[in-house]
C-alpha cells in the first residue's frame, strides 16, 4: 500500500466515523432540535407549565378578533387541533390556511396562550394572477399545475404536508 493510499484510507475512515457520530448525536437530540411541536406532539407529551413553541396551520374559519389586539384561532396539523389566544401585532403573513408558530404556555383549560407569534412561509412562490387562476380552478397546487391541470387532490395534500412537516 502506497502512502497516498494509506492517507486516503485514513481520511475515508475518519470521515465515516465523524459522519456516524454526528448522525447519532443529531438523532439523539431530535426533540431539542425541532423548532416547534405539532398539536399531536403536544397531546402525546404534555409540556406541563413549560414555555414551548407549537406550529401548524391556522385552521380556516377559526380566526376570531376578541376586541383590542387579542385574537383566537385553532392551530391544526390536520390530525389534532389546539385553540390559541394571542394579544399583539400579527406578522404580515399571518392568515387562515397558512403556517404559524406560536410560543407560549398551555393552560390547564387546554387553551394555548401565545406570547410570541411567527408566521411560517411555505415553499411556493407565484405571481398574484397565477394564484387567482389556481384558486378559480379550485386547487391550491404548485404553479406548474396550471398547465398540466393534473392531480388537484395530490397537490392539495402536498401543500399541507409540506407546510407542516412534523418530524417522522
Amino acid at each position: 500500500m502506497t502512502r497516498k493510499r494509506r492517507r486516503l484510507m485514513i481520511l475515508v475512515l475518519a470521515l465515516l466515523g465523524l459522519g456516524t457520530a454526528t448522525a447519532l448525536t443529531l438523532s439523539a437530540f431530535r426533540d431539542n432540535i425541532v423548532f416547534f411541536y405539532s398539536p399531536s406532539d403536544l397531546a402525546a407529551k404534555p409540556p406541563g407549565g413549560r414555555t414551548v413553541r407549537i406550529g401548524g396551520l391556522v385552521e380556516a374559519g377559526s380566526l376570531k378578533r376578541e376586541g383590542g389586539m387579542t385574537v383566537t384561532f385553532q392551530v391544526t396539523d390536520t390530525a389534532k387541533s389546539l385553540p390559541v389566544t394571542y394579544t399583539g401585532i400579527l406578522p404580515d403573513l399571518f392568515r387562515e390556511g397558512q403556517g404559524v408558530v406560536a410560543e407560549g404556555k398551555l393552560g390547564p383549560d387546554g387553551v394555548f396562550t401565545a406570547t410570541e407569534l411567527l408566521a411560517k412561509h411555505d415553499e411556493k412562490y407565484m405571481p398574484p394572477d397565477v394564484a387567482d387562476a389556481l384558486k378559480r380552478a379550485g386547487h391550491p397546487g404548485k404553479p406548474g399545475d396550471t398547465s398540466s391541470g393534473g392531480a388537484p387532490v395530490a397537490a392539495g395534500e402536498e401543500h399541507q404536508t409540506s407546510t407542516l412537516r412534523t418530524h417522522p
Partner: peptide, 26 residues
C-alpha cells in the same frame, strides 16, 4: 435541516423531488 426537523425556515423550492414550486416568471 428543513426536512429532518420542524423549522421556521421553509423547505426547498427549486432543488426538490417533484420539481420546483416556484412560478417560471420568478
Amino acid at each position: 435541516s428543513v426536512e429532518w426537523w420542524n423549522t421556521l425556515h421553509q423547505p426547498a423550492s427549486v432543488f426538490r423531488l417533484g420539481g420546483p414550486t416556484i412560478a417560471a416568471s420568478m
